[in-house]
Design a protein around this nucleic acid. Sequence first.
DNA 1: GCACGCCATGTGAGCGTTAACATCACCTCG
DNA 2: CGAGGTGATGTTAACGCTCACATGGCGTGC
Lengths: 331, 331
Amino acid sequence: MNDVAALAGVSHQTVSRVLNEHPSVRPATRERVLEAIATLGYRPNLAARALVTRRTGTLGVITPASALFGPTSTLVAFEQAARDAGFYVSVATLRAFQGDEVVAAVEHFLAQGVDGVVVVAPRSGTVDAVGGVHVPVPVVLVSSGREGLDLPTVSVDQVAGGRLATEHLLTSGRRTVVHVAGPQEWYDARDRLRGWREALEAAGVPVPEHRAGGWSAADGYQVGTELVRTGVPEAIFAANDQLALGLLAAFGQAGVRVPQDVAVVGFDDEPGTAFYAPPLTTVRQGFDELGRRAVQSVVDALAGGAPAHHAIAPELVVRRSSGAAQGPPTG
Amino acid sequence: MNDVAALAGVSHQTVSRVLNEHPSVRPATRERVLEAIATLGYRPNLAARALVTRRTGTLGVITPASALFGPTSTLVAFEQAARDAGFYVSVATLRAFQGDEVVAAVEHFLAQGVDGVVVVAPRSGTVDAVGGVHVPVPVVLVSSGREGLDLPTVSVDQVAGGRLATEHLLTSGRRTVVHVAGPQEWYDARDRLRGWREALEAAGVPVPEHRAGGWSAADGYQVGTELVRTGVPEAIFAANDQLALGLLAAFGQAGVRVPQDVAVVGFDDEPGTAFYAPPLTTVRQGFDELGRRAVQSVVDALAGGAPAHHAIAPELVVRRSSGAAQGPPTG
DNA sequence: GCACGCCATGTGAGCGTTAACATCACCTCG
DNA sequence: CGAGGTGATGTTAACGCTCACATGGCGTGC
């Protein structure tokens, strides 16, 4: 920085002012400084800046260590939005989402000196754990569950998604809808279940038993096999696309026709769902907006705003598995 | 730090020594310092340390901004390995993988002061771009293409994977194998193609025309439809699972039986492939090892080691689509 | 028994930046 | 025409840590 100052014939402080876009620098001076910076290939030292400003410009994201579609899409969207807003993004992935692992990740970020932490908290326990640590920087939850904590929260409205899927099946002529639920320690799974129940109740339809399990196609296959044995319902809302895929596999194998014998709707709109056999009706979540909102929440919190809760509306994608469209599949 | 020193009755330097595990500190003293640290909830300031050591302990990863299975799995594996090795991981995702965007991401990391950069470089152009910038810190490529650059490289051996898939189809009785290739500006796509060709040539089988396109199920579907019209080959090796999914959709719709009429093999072993119709034979890549190796390469480069190139062997996962297994699908 | 060396610890400086204050020229207004 | 203000710049002191060197106590070997 001193070299730049010397070359431009100003003091180091003027260089600093140019760097920080301070208003009272003469255009001619600024020009000279910028030129010197370019000539010398000077790059400000962030550590030194952080030392005095007590800001690192870095946000930490805690996210599940999986290639699951939802969390990864969220991560990517968040990183893009954060970089646009001028932040660096540091990541910590968690295999198990247990309390102490979450705490360790938070500590990891605090040691690094992040300006804020975003927790993609899909499972209960995570949120409690976050609430239990004292974190001296803003924390934003990307999660459907907030468990009474007074933290800003951003999420896709899973209840609305569940309702959307269920209503679609009801309005397309099915008298009832069975739900193949995801693991109930996941907020999303609970909320999709709730949306399904609400839609049934609103329609005055008795609520059948639901089946809970994991998120994987293997789980869906198992439930599907069981349904084939015990009786296939008119319609099924699966808590995600993988479960739906497993159901389709079981039905296909047993000669149960979709959508004629049973309509199926999934959740996520993963890549490829348009080419399942048959193409899968599903619910798409707006991850880009989720990412932008999360960044916005951190910025707001940094500015001292009150914690707000944002829910993003999901969108139904209708394909053949629910008996609506016909003809060749389209992406 | 001064508070800690005062409380422990030592100098700030001794505290620093304890923090850095310097050998010559008496156990009793160390104990007292650690206690003071715990009492005061003291956390060292990384910026101050970075300012003097010129190390931030942060690694930057440049990776595609997509939820594609390969890149995300790599990212997660890398982050885990890096954190185990004591590094923070900063991420930059790229929508397009064009030269200037890559350069911008590298600059972003340099401004942040990372100790090393890992570039997940799936497409040509990326690597050239990296080669074009002067980067004052180690750069490691996670990529099948290195284009003559003298950078350490880590990758899953895509050629071997292509060979594996093709040989499997040949040994299971098919006389030839058609390849549905991925976009040829992706190294992985080129190498899988090469592996396929090598296997055919090694077996003394004439090499049929291959079909190149995108990575998506829609692309696979299109090729499949075309094949149905022009004649379905005995076996197909698709460059990834999504392409294979599209093929299966096209064949299923046209009444072409898999594997009886045509055997199909994919690549990636994405979640759910075991439940495609029929379950898909595919090639699994060892992402965990990839991540560990990448971290190791950075560490080696930081220690001044010569650039090495590591290739990880992929693994064939045999399922029904290639006509081997029968019975209900398994995970 | 004394010099030497090593271990445990303390002292002072400096890493590169920004914040706070100081300075000086010039402009405005009564 | 002079007081007061404003805009452009410089000067100095931190920020919290590690490095290099200084200091003093104690064991070792001839």
